[in-house]
Design a protein around this nucleic acid. Sequence first.
DNA 1: TTGTAAGCGTTATCAC
DNA 2: GTGATAACGCTTACAA
Lengths: 348, 348
Amino acid sequence: MTGPEPTDQEPAGARGGGRDRRPTMADIARHVGVSRPLVSIVLRGAEGASDATRQRVLRAAAELGYRPDSLAQGLRSNRTRHLGVLFALRRPFEVELVEQMFPVVERLGYHLLLGATTAFRGQEAVTDELLRYRCEGLVVVGPELDGHRLEPVAEEVPVVEIGRRVTRGPVDVVRNDDAFGTRQAVDHLVSLGHRAIAFVDGGDNPGAEDRRAGYAAAMAAHGLAAEARVVPGGYTEDEGAKAAGLLLSDRLPTAVIASNDLSAIGLLDSVLRAGVRVPHELSVVGYDDSRFARLPGIDLTSVRQDVPRMAELAVQAVVERLDLPPREPRDVALPPQLVVRGTTAPPP
Amino acid sequence: MTGPEPTDQEPAGARGGGRDRRPTMADIARHVGVSRPLVSIVLRGAEGASDATRQRVLRAAAELGYRPDSLAQGLRSNRTRHLGVLFALRRPFEVELVEQMFPVVERLGYHLLLGATTAFRGQEAVTDELLRYRCEGLVVVGPELDGHRLEPVAEEVPVVEIGRRVTRGPVDVVRNDDAFGTRQAVDHLVSLGHRAIAFVDGGDNPGAEDRRAGYAAAMAAHGLAAEARVVPGGYTEDEGAKAAGLLLSDRLPTAVIASNDLSAIGLLDSVLRAGVRVPHELSVVGYDDSRFARLPGIDLTSVRQDVPRMAELAVQAVVERLDLPPREPRDVALPPQLVVRGTTAPPP
DNA sequence: TTGTAAGCGTTATCAC
DNA sequence: GTGATAACGCTTACAA
C-alpha cells in the first residue's frame, strides 16, 4: 500500500459542513407516523398497506430523497438478485456480449454486476469479488483454459460459460458452433476455386480448438487434406502478424482463414506491407464479425456469431438454475453465419 | 415485468441437495473456540490478537473456505471503499480509460464498481444503482450535456467528470486540452501546405465544443479564417459518413479534421468509396488515437489523449475529497499530442 | 391494515 | 488479549 493511509473513519468529503446522512426507512416512518416495516411494504410494492398510507409513504420518500440501500436489502433478504458477469474489457466481442445481457437480465428481474478482467486483475480475483457481493449466479465469457478453476465456484452458485466448456459439473454452456463456422469459411473459399487454404491457429483461446477441427474436417471433406496447413497463432493482432511472417517466409497459400478478426487484421497488415494484394493474390477470412471487420479499409470477410441470442440464452440458463429445480447441464451451440466482404475473391 | 414472476424465496439452484450455506465469522469462531469479534480482528488484520490465535483463525478460515461478505461489511462499517465509474460500454475510448483506473483505485485502497451505460440504461439509472450500492465517490466519463443533472449527486458524494465540465459545484474535472489538440492538427496540415481545411463537428459530445473552437482559433491564427468550414457531424461512423456526403456534394477541401476517430473512419470510408485518394487528394485527421486509428488499413493521423494520466488524476481527485478536507474544485486540462500516420500528406 | 420483535453478517464499543 | 453487547438498514415472521 503506497497511497495515503486508508483511514477507517467516516469519509469527510462532500459532506460540506455537516450534511445530513442519507434518509432511511426509519426517517420516512417517523415522518409519516407509521412503523418501519410498513414503509418497507409500501416501497417494495408488496401487499398489505392501504392506499392512503401508500400515498403518504411514497410522498414522504420522494420528499426526503430516499434511496433504497442495496447492501442492507441483500443482507437481510438473503437475495441480492444480482448476476455477475466475468469478461475481458479489452475484447470487443465480449463487451458486445455483455451489453446485450442488460435487457435480458432486467426483464427477468435481476441486475448485472460487471466483473471486468484486465491486465491487472485475473479471473480468479474478479470472481472472488463478485462472490463477496453475493452474486447469485455467474456468467463467464471466454473462460480461461488453464486459469482459474471454476468447479468450486459452480458448487456455490450457478455458472454459465460462454464460448466453450471448460468446467465439469453442473455448468451450462452457450457457444457458437465453431467447427461449423470454419467449415463455412472453407466451403466459401473452395467454391471460389481455392485449394491451398491455410489456417492461422487460435492457440488455447475460447473456440480456437473447434475452429481448427472444423477447418481440418472441411478440408478433408473437400479432398484437400493434403493442402491443409495450420500455422501457430492466437487472438491478437501481433500473433496474426507473426503468422503472416511464417506464411510469407515459406510458400504463400491462395487463402488464409484466421481464427479471429484481430488476428486476421494483423495478418492483413503484414501481407499488405509485404506487397501482397488482397484479395487478388491472397484471400483472408476472419472470425467474429467484430466492429473491426466492418470497418472501411478492412472490410473483412468473417464469420458472425449470434451475439444477442448467446447473451439471452446464457442469462436464461443462470436464472433457470436459480428459480427452477436442478436439471442436466445444457450445452447449446448456435450456428454462426459467414459474412462475405471484400477480402475474399477467386485465386489468381 | 414480462418474465417469470420473481419469487422472493431462497434461490434453489446450485444448492444441489442441501448444500451448506457459506461459512461466516461465527462458524470460524465456533471452529476455533474464540469469539466472533476476535475473528473479525484477525481477518481484518487489525491489532489486538495474539499471534497464536491469529494463526488458528486464519487456518480455520482457509479450511472452511471463508469469504468475507462485502454487503455486511459495508453496512456495518459504513465504509464500502467503493468508487463508482459511469461510462459508455460502446465507446472504446471510455473503456480504455476505465481499464486504466483499476490499478490506481487498487493502490489507494479502494475498489471500482462499474456503471456501464448502454442503449438500454441511461446515466441517471446507472448513477442511482451505484449510489444504492453505497459508492463513496463517482467518476463520470463523458458526462451527458443535456442528460441527467449531477448537481444533487455531487451533494451526496464526491464527483469527478472526465472529458468536460458539465456540473456546477464542488466537482473536479479532468480533461485534455481539446482546443490545443485541434490546433496541433491544423498546424500540422498547414505546415504540409494545406489551406482549405474543413472540420467535422462533434455536436454536443464531450470535448466537441472545445475542439471546434480550437480549430476556428488556429485557422484564424494562420490567416485562414476565410477558409474555415465547419460541417455538422458527431462521434459515430455514421455521422462521419454523412459529413463526407456534404463535403463531396459541395466542393472538397484538401484536408479534413474530424472531431473523433470513429467519425474520421466513417468519413474515410465514404470518400474512399467515392474514389477520392487518401492522403493524395484528401488528408484526414482524427481525434483520440483509439485502437481503430492504429489499425492497418486505417493508419489514421490522430490526436492522442494521455489516457493513463487522466485515469490517475480522476481517481486521485475523488479519493482526496474522500480522505482530505474540502478544497476548491479543480479543473485539469492535459496537453494532447498529435500522432502523424498515413492519412496526412501535402495537398495535390 | 398495522405494529412488534428478531435477525441477516459484520464491525464498533466497551468491559474484563 | 479477549469476549459480550449493540448496531448498521432492511425484511421476515407473527401478533394485534
